[in-house]
Design a binder for these strands. Structure first.
Lengths: 104, 104
DNA sequence: CCATCGTATCGAAGTTTGTCGATATGTTCA
DNA sequence: TGAACATATCGACAAACTTCGATACGATGG
């Protein structure tokens, strides 16, 4: 059983987390930036909790800068896991969709 | 917020369900067939429960034949949802991976 | 060194979810 | 109609998860 795609799916299986992922797509945001983006939907400890889960699933990259901690979405892992899912659960479509070349 | 990809992720977020999906890939199996494939890992009511969840998430197709009910994995939905995920959460890779033509 | 600010962790409450045994529903066949 | 079989539903229980307030940790600047 592929443990990485299971972790990937579990990380995705929460609406707040998907919202956070959307905000972290293509940009680096600090924890408090994310809290602000969510506009009061959840509090800071909850955001930290979700960021930790995303980090454990390898779905975000993190970096410290002074007292801030910046996060961004790890698009390579998203791509890899989605590829795995298609190969396992949609092999009839796999050839149409997944490039044969390595993803860089 | 894309409600279908959230339902997709939630359906994937369980190991037993992923195992069932693997067994339903490319073949039609009855409920009891799936129970047998899982080799005592879970009981029949649990399998029925998971099949219902998969059906609600549109991840399986179902058909009745006599007293049996046959299920198979819906590869088109898997493909579509993975495509959505890549477009939303890996736009930098999206062009490399998702074909511009319609998926048939 | 101390106050401040951003972030992480802790403990608790409430909800959701997976699993089971028991049972109901539905289909076939004699 | 009734017995046998496949499947679905119900009720209960335990485990996992989300969320929160309170608090601890860590870095900065005076």
């Amino acid at each position: 059983m592929d443990t990485q795609t299971l972790a990937f799916a579990k990380a995705l299986a929460d609406e707040t987390r998907q919202e956070i992922m959307g905000h972290l797509c293509c940009v680096w945001l600090s924890t408090s930036d994310v809290v602000a983006k969510l506009e009061g939907k959840v509090n800071q400890p909850t955001v930290s909790h979700h960021l930790k889960k995303l980090e454990e699933a390898n779905l975000v990259l993190a970096r410290r800068e002074g007292k801030y901690r910046y996060y961004t979405l790890n698009q390579a892992v998203v791509t890899f896991c989605c590829g795995q899912l298609v190969r396992r659960f949609a092999p009839d479509y796999s050839a149409q969709i997944i490039p044969t070349e390595e993803i860089t």
